[in-house]
């Protein structure tokens, strides 16, 4: 083992890690937002719209992220969509994650008892208020563990962005190992960075869960 190379490559590794976290965070936030919109469309839109949305879900879930990125980055310019590597990567992550997030939100909404929605309808609440005040807060409680789980899966999907030259962590690690032939050290560093990130996300997730379920614990 030769750890001294870390001194030399430390700054570029940290920069790569910074990009990884950035891509993950923004991709997750946008992917979740798009997923939420999709889940709401599926619940409220006319049937023909839900069919289109369902087709989108099937296509994105049915194809590898790698292929989607290639199509977006190298195929995009053919239809006038010319993006730099980082924005293309972000858009790719957003699209890739959205159908999974949509399904998680859908299951969360289904877990809200119909009676609680009917109670809101019975006093004359508008559907918009029902979504904001009842469906979302209650659906989120059941959806949160799965949302955190899929966000964790997404951290590791960010490495695929390296193939379209997004300078994220794997990209930097590959450069380092190609230049020094220290493949093992480089990849162990990569693993450590990801482990730390996932650990942090999981802790934040648990804390959020404890917070929003505080009042829902049944009296024993």
């Amino acid at each position: 083992m030769e750890w001294s190379i870390l001194q030399q490559y430390g700054p570029s590794l940290l920069k790569g890690f910074g990009n990884t976290v950035l891509c993950w965070a923004l991709g997750t936030v946008f992917g979740m937002a798009l997923g939420l919109v999709i889940a709401l469309i599926q619940r409220y839109a006319p049937r023909w719209v839900t069919w289109i949305v369902q087709a989108y879900i099937e296509v994105i879930r049915g194809t590898p992220f790698l292929v989607q990125l290639f199509v977006l980055y190298y195929g995009g310019p053919l239809v006038g969509l010319r993006l730099d590597a980082l924005p293309a990567g972000l858009l790719g992550l957003t699209i890739y994650g959205s159908p999974y997030f949509a399904e998680i939100f859908r299951s969360g909404f289904r877990a809200v008892p119909l009676g609680q929605i009917e109670a809101a309808r019975a006093i004359g609440m508008s559907e918009l208020n029902i979504v904001r005040r009842i469906l979302l807060p209650l659906g989120l409680v059941s959806a949160l563990p799965a949302l955190v789980n899929f966000s964790i899966i997404l951290t590791k999907e960010t490495v695929i962005l390296s193939i379209i030259t997004v300078p994220e962590l794997l990209y930097q690690v590959q450069r380092m190992s190609a230049e020094t032939f220290r493949y093992l050290e480089a990849n162990l560093v990569l693993a450590l960075f990801f482990w730390g990130l996932v650990e942090a996300i999981s802790r934040v997730g648990h804390r959020m869960e404890a917070r929003i379920t505080k009042h829902l614990i049944e009296r024993t």
């Binding site: 009917e118 109670a119 019975a122 006093i123 409680v141 929003i212 829902l216």
Partner: peptide, 16 residues
């Protein structure tokens, strides 16, 4: 519906 109150078998209070 504003002027019609309804009470359900399962209460249907909003738990949050």
């Amino acid at each position: 519906r504003r002027s019609i109150g309804m009470v359900f078998q399962q209460f249907n209070l909003w738990p949050h």
